[in-house]
C-alpha cells in the first residue's frame, strides 16, 4: 500500500523495534520466528474480520497476542512494554 503522510513515524518505529528484537534474539532464532508467526496470525485474523464485514470475530484477540508475546519475551520487559505501544487496546 502507498505511504500516507502520517505513516513514516510508525513505520520507522516498527523498523527499529524489529531490529532490536532481531539483535536481542540473535542466538535464539526460534524466538524471533515465533514472534513473526504471532504477528502474521494476528494480521490474518484482522483481515478475515475486515473481509467478513463484522460477521467474523478474530480468534486471536489483542489480549491473546500480548499474552503470547509476553511468554516469548519473558525476562525482556523492555521489549514487551515497547510491544504494548504497538498493540491496539493493550
Amino acid at each position: 500500500p502507498p505511504l500516507q503522510n502520517n505513516q513514516p513515524v510508525e513505520f520507522n518505529h516498527a523498523i527499529n523495534y524489529v531490529n532490536k528484537i532481531k539483535n536481542r534474539f540473535q542466538g535464539q532464532p526460534d524466538i524471533y520466528k515465533s514472534f513473526l508467526e504471532i504477528l502474521h496470525t494476528y494480521q490474518k485474523e484482522q483481515r478475515n474480520a475486515k473481509e467478513a464485514g463484522g460477521n467474523y470475530t478474530p480468534t486471536l484477540t489483542e489480549q491473546e497476542v500480548y499474552t503470547q508475546v509476553a511468554k516469548l519475551f519473558k525476562n525482556q520487559e523492555d521489549l514487551l512494554s515497547e510491544f504494548g505501544q504497538f498493540l491496539p487496546d493493550a
Binding site: E10, V18, Y42, F86
Partner: peptide, 27 residues
C-alpha cells in the same frame, strides 16, 4: 534498513499497521 528479509519486512508492515489501528481507535 540493513539485511532485512521479506519476513522482517512483513513484520514491520504488521507492526506499523497495528500502530495505525491503535491511533485510529484512540482518536
Amino acid at each position: 534498513s540493513h539485511d532485512f528479509t521479506p519476513l522482517d519486512s512483513s513484520a514491520v508492515y504488521v507492526l506499523s499497521s497495528m500502530a495505525r489501528r491503535r491511533r485510529a481507535s484512540q482518536s
